[in-house]
Design a protein around this nucleic acid. Structure first.
Lengths: 205, 205
DNA sequence: GTGCAGATATGCAATGGATGCAAGTACGCG
DNA sequence: CGCGTACTTGCATCCATTGCATATCTGCAC
C-alpha cells in the first residue's frame, strides 16, 4: 500500500473518530462538517472527498458488511436452504457490530433520534437487502425466482428491523434479550416460508 | 369548516399540485421550494408552515393511510388471527388511498431515483410499521408480545417492499404498472402466511 | 358593526450542507 | 530530477431550513 493510500486511510479514520467524538459531545446537529474537518485537520471542502455527506460518516463500513453477507451466501453448505443462508448472512454481517458496544449504542441512538441519519440508515439497509436478494436468487435458481427471493429477504430483514426497533426503543438491554429478540424475529419471518423453500429452514442459535 | 380552514386546505392542495407539476417538468432537484411557493402564490417562508420539508410534499396523505390501517385492525372479525388482520391492514392502506391516483407512477419514480425522497419514504413506512405493530399487539395481548408483533409486522411489510423493489426496478411510467406490481407483490410476499394461517395456526411463537 | 385575541402570512437575515471551479501541493514513477 | 496525476483547498454559490419581528387576517364576543 502506497504512502498516499496509507495517508488517505489515516485521514479517513481521523474523520470518523473526530465525528464520533464531536457527535458525542455536541450532538449531531450541534456539530458542523466544518468542526469535524477542523478536528481532523483538513479543509472543510476536503471532507466531501472522503464522505459524500455528513451522514455517511456514521456508516463507514456499509460496503464491507454487504460484502461479508455476499461472502456468507457464496460459501453456503450443500444442505443449506434459503433460510439457513439468510441466517448465516445476518450473523456474518452483524458480527462486528455487536449491538451492545458503546460505539454501536451511540450510533443506534443517533439513528433513533436524528431523522436524516435514520433515513440514510434505512436506505443503506434497503440497498443491502437488494444485493442479498439477488445473490440468494442466484444461489437457488430452481427454488427461488427473483421476486420471491426479494420477498423472503425483505421479510427476514423487516422482521429483524421491526423487532430491534421495539427492543432498542428504551435504554440498552442485555445481550441475552437481544439474542432472544433476534431469534423470535427470524422465527416469525421464516416459519411461514418453510414449506415453500424446504424443511431445513429452522435453525437455532 | 371555517373559512380559515377551507382557505388553508385550498392553499395546501395548490402546493401539492404545483409541486407535482414542477417536479414533472423540471425534475425534483431542479425545482426549488421558492419555485413551488411562487407557483402556489404564497411566500417562500410560508411553505414551511404547510410542509415541514420539500419531501413531505410528496407524502401528503401519510396520516390517512396510517389511520386506515388502524381502522382495519380495529374492525377485525372474531376469528381473525394476527396474520389475517395484518393482511387486511396492508391491503386496506395500500389500496385505499393514493396508489390509484395518476401521479402514483411519478411518485414511485421519484422514490426510486431521488435519494432524499427514498429516505423519507422509508422513514414514513417505518413509522407506520411501528404504529401498526402497537395496535396489533394491543389487539392480541395474549398471543403477541410487543417484540413478536413488531417482528411480524416488519416481516409483512418487508416482504411486500422487497418484492415491490424488484418488480419496480426499471422506470415506471403508468399507474397501471404500479397497480399490477402491487398486486403481484402482495400475492407473492404474503402467500406463505395465508397458507400458514389457513391451517388455523398463527405464527407459532 | 367594532374591536380584540389568536392564528397566519411574510420578509429578512443567518446557518449549514453541498457542489463547481480553479489554483496550489504532494506523491509515484520513470 | 522532473513530469503527470491525484489529492487539497479556498472561494463563490445554491438552496433548504429556521428564528425573529412585523403585518395581516379570521373567529368571536360585545
Amino acid at each position: 500500500m502506497s504512502l498516499r493510500d496509507r495517508k488517505r486511510a489515516r485521514t479517513r479514520q481521523a474523520l470518523i473518530d473526530a465525528g464520533a467524538e464531536l457527535f458525542e459531545r455536541q450532538g449531531y446537529d450541534g456539530t458542523t462538517v466544518a468542526d469535524i474537518a477542523a478536528a481532523a485537520e483538513i479543509g472543510t471542502r476536503t471532507f466531501f472527498s472522503y464522505f459524500a455527506s455528513k451522514e455517511e460518516l456514521l456508516f463507514p463500513d456499509a460496503d464491507e458488511r454487504i460484502r461479508a453477507a455476499e461472502e456468507a451466501i457464496a460459501s453456503r453448505g450443500p444442505d443449506d436452504g434459503p433460510a439457513d443462508v439468510l441466517l448465516r448472512a445476518l450473523r456474518t454481517s452483524a458480527r462486528d457490530t455487536d449491538l451492545l458496544s458503546p460505539i454501536a449504542a451511540r450510533r443506534i441512538e443517533l439513528i433513533r433520534t436524528v431523522p436524516a441519519v435514520r433515513g440514510r440508515a434505512l436506505q443503506i439497509q434497503l440497498d443491502a437487502q437488494r444485493v442479498i436478494a439477488d445473490r440468494l436468487a442466484e444461489a437457488f435458481p430452481d427454488r427461488l425466482d427473483p421476486v420471491t427471493a426479494a420477498a423472503l429477504t425483505g421479510a427476514f430483514v423487516g422482521a429483524v428491523t421491526g423487532a430491534l426497533q421495539v427492543l432498542l426503543a428504551g435504554p440498552v438491554t442485555d445481550a441475552q434479550a437481544v439474542r432472544t429478540a433476534l431469534q423470535t424475529a427470524t422465527d416469525v419471518a421464516l416459519a411461514p416460508w418453510q414449506h415453500h423453500t424446504a424443511r431445513g429452514a429452522a435453525a437455532r442459535t
